[in-house]
Write a protein that binds this DNA or RNA. Structure first.
Ligand code: ZN
Ligand code: ZN
Ligand code: ZN
Ligand code: ZN
Lengths: 162, 162
DNA sequence: GCGGCAAGTGATACATTGTATCATTTGTCG
DNA sequence: CGACAAATGATACAATGTATCACTTGCCGC
């Protein structure tokens, strides 16, 4: 499975969020501060989902004044901006893979290796939207988190069982 | 909107979980104990999602020895049995509305009144299943939680805005 | 520059949610 | 009854998330 089919290229991944953030800050009179950049960068270099406290651990060495509240505030900002997603089922946070526009996606989580793949599946979006309508809900948040084993982990698992 | 279209009748709702639980206990050599019944009953009488600690508060008066661990253990058991669901996005627990068989459903959560409606939408299930296949995942858990305003709350909201 | 203002941070303390451990009790079966 | 697994009680703790308020920072108009 070619990685490019699922993942944004790292160089672009690094650039796009910054662009979005700068635009958003201008628009709303907000600031793209040191702390917010630091959290974003950490999620980028790690390349996987991290809990708020894992982020804190990694930020402390370079900024001893980081606090839980600070990290959560930065994450809140980044989520509002649409460049970070929260994984409800693992209480962690991950960089958005499609930050070019705000969106409602789906997250697939491998319980073997922890990899998270972000999808934007039209059928799923349509189906959940229609379900909301049917039941008279006006939706403003859609959490779709699918957990299982990715292809790589499944073959490994099968190999070990023999 | 007729309630019967969405909700199992209370009398049945009370009966079905017990049947399922008794069957499951026989099958696995487990016990349907006082504590497990108490948690189930509390979720039933409350008729809405409760956090583990809200449950604990309500159980303490009638059983002063309840502990967090005990409540979580009971909830774990009830979830395994398929008669209770956990809402990841609100960290709470709710009685299953369709306990006749284990299933992967969708939960719609009203942020106005807290009502939770459980759906079993074939299109959503199919779409998420197909998405998993496409990305090479073998899924074993599907969290679909859609948050918004229910019809009632939306009309109230609109009325207040005037 | 500089005073005023909103946005953001630091520091502290606290609230909520979830687990680990181990001794004890309870139910079941022979 | 006695043995055994299932379940609980008790305690302590880990992990996750927020409230508050004084202080700082950047920006804007003067
Ligand atoms: Zn995204
Ligand atoms: Zn994997
Ligand atoms: Zn259900
Ligand atoms: Zn409502």
């Amino acid at each position: 499975m070619p990685k490019a089919a699922r993942k944004t290229h790292p160089a672009r991944a690094a650039q796009q969020p910054l662009e979005r953030l700068e635009a958003l800050c201008l628009e709303r009179g907000q600031r793209l501060t040191r702390q917010r950049r630091a959290v974003l960068r950490q999620l980028l270099v790690e390349g996987r989902a991290l809990s708020a406290y894992e982020l804190l651990e990694r930020l402390r060495p370079e900024d001893g004044r980081s606090t839980p509240a600070g990290v959560y505030r930065a994450l809140e900002f980044l989520m509002q901006a649409g460049v970070v997603h929260r994984l409800e089922s693992t209480r962690s946070f991950i960089l958005c893979e499609h930050p070019e526009a705000p969106h409602t996606g789906q997250l697939l989580i491998c319980r073997g290796c922890g990899e998270v793949v972000e999808a934007e599946d039209e059928r799923v979006s349509a189906a959940t939207g229609r379900l909301g309508e049917q039941l008279g809900f006006s939706l403003d948040q859609r959490v779709v988190e699918l957990t299982g084993l990715c292809g790589r982990c499944r073959t490994q698992h099968a190999a070990q069982a023999q």
